[in-house]
Every structure is written in C-alpha cells, then in structure tokens.
Amino acid sequence: MTKYARDEFDRVPETSSRQGVHRVASESSRRRLGPILAVGVVALAIGLVAFLFLPKLGITPSGSPLMAAGSALSSPSASAETPQGTASPGAEPSADPGAVPSASETPSAGSPPSEVPSAEAQAVDKSQAVAVYNGTTTAGLAGRVSSTVAGEGWTLGPVGNWGGMPQQSSVIYYSGAEQKANAEALGELLNITSLVDSAEFQQPVVVVLGPGFQ
C-alpha cells in the first residue's frame, strides 16, 4: 500500500474492457499486415511455379525473355539465308573460278603469236622512182644499171654521174622506213648490201654505184 491518499486517477472500473492504448494499436496493425503478407506469399508461389514448370510443358508466356532468346536462336541472320550464287543488291558479281574462257580469250593450239609486220614483210612498190648515179670512172655504167632496173619493172628517176663525195663502195639510199623494202629488193637485184636511211635526197630510192661494182 502507498502512503499517499487515493485520488480520481486511482478509481478504475473493474468491468472496463480497455487494456491500454499501445495494446489496441498493436492488434490493429497485425490485422492489416496479415492479408498483405498472404497475398505476397501466394504471388511468389505462382511465380516460382510458372518459372520452373511451364517451360518444361512447352508453354512460354508471350513477350517473356525466354521467348525472345528462343526466337533469336531459331532465326538465322539475313546473310546466312542468302543462297550461294545469288548476288546481293548493289554488289558486283565475283569472278567464277571454274569459268571456261571464251574462244576469243583462248589461243588456238599451234597458231603462232601475232607479230607486227616487219619492214621485210612490207610489200615492194616498184612504182616508186629509182635514181641511178655512177660514182666510178667507168663510162656508161649508170645507163647499163638503169636498164637492168627498168627491165625488172621499176620506175626510173634521174640517171647520170655522181656529183657528191667520192664513194668507197656502192650504196643504196632510201627515204624513210616505208622505202626500206624497195631498197632491199634493189640490193638483191644489184648485189649491193650497203643500205642507208637518209633524208638528204628528194628521190625515194637512190642507187650510187661505187668502185668495184660488178
């Protein structure tokens, strides 16, 4: 017993149902949290079942990561789907290593390679004027040789004595490469081997008879 006198705060009805404010608040909070926890447990259980058992049954929810990964693995890339031998748009066709060259590219067997016609193979033009000069002391030599040249069908040019520098041997002068074939033909006819390309003469071919000409 206390030594203090009792007051109005000590008068508590014995039949009152109140047990304290803190106890009432604790009971109400437990009542509110119970349904929330139950719903969370049920949702977690449903998620585990869907994650573990549905893929084994072949059921995959649309838009799920598993479906996206499966579609990425099952669909090959566009480059792998392109058939071999089909050129993609804008790409140049590659050369076929097994292609057989055409007849124009394959040289025929036994055919000689094409060559540029040489001066010897050029046609002889006997219509070109041939001048004949005597560079020796033998009288009438130029006339005799010019008769031989004309007898072979050549066109004669000037015929006379040589007025230039003394010659050591007989020479045939020709003007340009186009007259070389004519000079060679005359050299074979007159047995003259010295041929000189010169632009000093106005005649296409000039035959100068030197000492020792036979």
Rank of each mutant, 00 (worst) to 15 (best):
T148P: 03
N191W: 11
A5Y: 00
L54D: 09
L156I: 03
E115Y: 06
N161K: 14
S26H: 02
Q214D: 08
E178L: 02
A69E: 15
S111I: 13
L48Y: 05
A142H: 06
G58L: 12
R23E: 12
E14D: 10
L186A: 02
E8P: 00
K3N: 01
A121G: 06
S94C: 10
G34A: 13
T60G: 14
T106N: 05
P97A: 14
A68Y: 04
D197T: 05
Y173K: 01
R31T: 12
V41K: 11
S28V: 07
A131Q: 12
E200D: 14
S71D: 11
S71K: 09
L54F: 14
T193L: 01
S169Y: 13
L209I: 04
P204S: 03
A95G: 09
M165S: 15
S114I: 09
Q122D: 12
V132K: 07
Y174D: 07
F53T: 02
V130W: 03
S17F: 10
T155C: 02
G187W: 13
A139N: 12
V145E: 00
V149P: 01
M1W: 06
K56A: 13
I172A: 10
P113C: 01
N191D: 14
P89A: 15
R11H: 00
D10H: 00
V132W: 03
V149W: 05
A131H: 05
L66S: 10
K56S: 15
S26C: 05
T155L: 06
V206Y: 01
A78C: 04
G34L: 12
N134A: 07
G176E: 13
E92P: 09
A68C: 02
A123L: 13
S146L: 02
S111G: 10
D7G: 04
V145N: 03
Q202W: 03
L195R: 09
G110D: 10
A80F: 11
G34H: 13
A185V: 06
A109E: 15
A38F: 04
K180R: 10
G210F: 00
N134I: 07
G20W: 01
Q19T: 08
A119T: 13
P158L: 05
D197V: 00
P13A: 07
P166V: 05
E14R: 13
I172P: 12
S71Y: 06
G210R: 02
P89R: 08
I172M: 05
S88M: 07
E105A: 11
N161Q: 11
F53C: 04
Q214H: 07
S64R: 03
A181C: 09
A91M: 14
N134T: 11
G110W: 04
V41A: 14
G153H: 14
A69K: 15
V149L: 02
L186W: 07
T138V: 11
S118L: 01
G47D: 06
G164A: 10
V21Y: 15
V159P: 00
K3M: 01
E115W: 02
S94L: 12
K56H: 07
L54W: 12
A80S: 14
E178R: 06
T155E: 05
A72V: 08
Q202M: 05
I59S: 11
L48W: 02
V116Y: 08
S16V: 11
E8F: 00
S74Y: 10
T155W: 01
A50E: 05
A91I: 10
S74N: 14
P117C: 03
L48T: 13
